[in-house]
Structure formats: C-alpha cells, structure tokens
Simulated assay, not measured.
Amino acid sequence: MSLAAFNALEPQAAAELIRPCVDSDGWVTAVVAGRPYSSVDDALAAAETAAAGWVEADLDQALAHHPRIGDRAAGTNSEATMSRSEQAGVGLNSVTSSQMLAGNREYEQRFGRVFLIRAAGRSAAEILAELDRRLGNSPDQETGEAIEQLRQIALLRLRGVIEQ
C-alpha cells in the first residue's frame, strides 16, 4: 500500500493494516493517530518514537502470537505471512534446526517467553550465535534486548506495508 493510501484510510482500517507489524495497542494507536505522514521516513520516525517507551508488558502482548524462530508460522493472516517471509532467508538445515529447537527450549525455560530476534538479513549461524550469547543475559538485560528486537521487527514490517 502506498503511504498516501495509508494516510487516507479510516482509523480502524489503518489500525488493522499495521497491527500485524506488532501487536501493541499503544503503538498502533500512536502510529494511526500521527497520520497524515509526509514521507515514509516520517511515518517510521513516529513509529520509532511510539516504540521508545515499550516495557515488558508490551513485549508480552506482542509475543502472544509470535512463533518461535525456526518454526513456520501457521495461518494465512498478515502476521504469519510476514513471519514466514522474514525467516525465509535464514537457511535452516537439519543440524541448525535441531540446534534452534534446543536453544529455543532453553531460552523459554530461562526467560519464560519465546526467543525474539530480527531474522531478516541474518543467517541461521548468526541467529544461533545470538541465541547462545543472549542466554547469558540477566532477565532485565534480556527484556531490553528482546524489546529492541521487537522494535526492529515492527519498523521493518511497517516499512514493508507502507512502501508497497
């Protein structure tokens, strides 16, 4: 969708369009309320500002429907489609898939949530290295890193939605 078309949508339709970027009520509301945007960069700057105050509750809300890295997102909705597209270039094989599954389980036991990382532009080896490194984080450090990854994912997805 073009930026002009996004700017022209009714608020509810605009919210439905961008909610798959990140399921955060406050973020969606802020991005929709900031319209009209004069450029994609302005929209992304507003989205980044809206994400700046995210806390653990925002992370938990957003991860409620988020698949594990390495799992194929089920369904035909926009969020599942975006997730499959982002993970398509990761290049998992039987060895890295097994390592990812084991790492995901360890991460979930340690932190109580799925491991979140911006997969776009990363290889399986890079993701596994980050997973291993982040397992050494304290819970507070990891919450901060996961929120940063969520922000990156949201901005990439939003760019994809409004630059079409």
Rank of each mutant, 00 (worst) to 15 (best):
L59I: 06
A13T: 14
H65G: 08
A74F: 02
L3A: 07
G34D: 10
L155K: 05
E163F: 09
A47G: 01
L3S: 06
P11N: 11
G160A: 02
G112T: 00
V55T: 12
G70E: 00
A52P: 08
R110Y: 04
D71Q: 12
V28N: 09
S123Q: 11
Q109F: 11
E79A: 08
P36L: 01
Y107N: 00
W54V: 01
D23V: 12
A45N: 11
A73M: 00
M82F: 15
V40P: 00
E86S: 05
A64Q: 07
I69S: 00
G91D: 08
Y107K: 01
L131Y: 03
Y37A: 09
W27T: 02
R19P: 13
F111E: 02
S83I: 03
S123R: 08
E48Q: 15
A4Q: 15
V31Y: 14
A33Q: 09
S2A: 07
F111Q: 03
D58N: 11
A51P: 14
Q152K: 14
A33H: 12
G144F: 05
A43L: 14
A13N: 13
A4S: 14
D132F: 05
T143K: 05
H65V: 08
I153F: 14
A30H: 06
V90R: 14
N77L: 04
E145H: 15
R151D: 06
A129N: 12
E106D: 12
A5M: 11
V161T: 02
L128M: 02
S24K: 10
D71W: 06
D41P: 01
L9G: 05
S138H: 05
A154C: 13
E106C: 02
A64L: 09
L150C: 09
L92K: 04
A46F: 07
A14I: 03
D23R: 15
R118W: 07
A124Q: 09
R122Y: 07
Q61L: 06
L63N: 05
L9H: 09
R84P: 03
R159W: 04
A88C: 06
N7H: 09
Q87G: 04
N104Q: 10
A15C: 10
A57I: 07
M82I: 10
R133V: 00
S94H: 13
A8I: 07
R122H: 13
A120E: 14
A57Q: 15
T29K: 08
G103V: 04
S2D: 09
G26V: 01
S97E: 15
